[in-house]
Amino acid sequence: MQKLFLIRHGKPAAVWGEADEDPGLDDAGRVQAEAARDFLLSLPEDQRPLRVVSSPLRRCRETAAPTAEALGVTIEIDPGVGEIPTPKALTAEARPAWLREAFQGRWADIQGDLDYEDWRRRAAASLLPRGRTAVFSHYVAINAVMSLLAGDERVLVFRPDHASITILATDGGELVLVEAGREASTGVL
């Protein structure tokens, strides 16, 4: 099995519910992105990622950029590792309350336009062919993967800190947790 690195984006310049729906990183987030790069480059050469994949959102792309540049690769954009889709009828202002409610329950209980259990399975499945890859993603998407691997139906099972690196392993058919990344001392809630 090959290692895969699932990395939460660095600290954004704005949080969900604020005016900017696609914020980049703030100064702390840029430092966190460089620390993630430094960790990945410190690995033995035969374990370093060969590819860099990112959610389409700016905070993930900016977190991925130092790693991609250091490895000399182009960032591959994959919506499959993106943020949880918000129901179409929901306003940006209503998204924080919707997320807070989702965090309290199970994947099957999330109200919206799609089957969120299926979204969770697809997020995890998108990682299967990605051995030796650094994947830059989001809090909820990482929880989708972690809850599936743990066999836990709750939405919130893990509180990945900004730029937290969770190490998984894959053989293309199975995904295994090797080591959970650093958890935040404060939650998204």
Rank of each mutant, 00 (worst) to 15 (best):
R130L: 11
I142A: 07
E117R: 11
S126H: 14
L149H: 03
H138S: 05
L114A: 13
D109L: 00
A125T: 05
Y116T: 01
Q111K: 13
P129M: 11
Y116Q: 00
V135F: 09
Y139A: 15
M146F: 06
Y116F: 00
S126P: 15
Y139S: 14
A108V: 08
I110Q: 06
S137L: 10
N143K: 07
R121M: 12
L127Y: 00
D113S: 03
L114M: 13
F136N: 14
R121Q: 12
Y139I: 14
D152G: 08
W119V: 02
R130Q: 14
S137V: 06
A144M: 04
E117D: 03
D115F: 05
S147R: 07
E117G: 05
D109Y: 04
M146E: 03
R121S: 10
A144Q: 01
A134M: 10
Y116R: 05
D118C: 15
A144T: 00
L128V: 07
F136M: 15
G151K: 15
L149C: 01
R130P: 10
L114S: 13
G112F: 04
S137K: 12
A134T: 04
D109W: 03
L148N: 08
A150H: 12
A144P: 04
A124K: 13
V145H: 02
T133D: 00
A108F: 11
A141F: 09
M146Y: 06
A123R: 12
D152Y: 09
I110P: 06
W107Y: 02
A124G: 08
R121A: 09
R122A: 09
R130D: 05
L128N: 09
P129L: 13
S147Q: 03
S147A: 06
I110K: 11
L127P: 02
R121Y: 13
S126V: 13
A141Q: 09
S147M: 04
L148E: 04
A108Y: 10
V135G: 07
D115Q: 04
G151L: 13
S147G: 05
L149R: 07
V145W: 02
L149Q: 02
G131E: 00
H138I: 01
V135H: 10
L127G: 01
N143L: 01
V140F: 13
A141C: 10
V140S: 12
P129E: 10
R122F: 10
R132L: 07
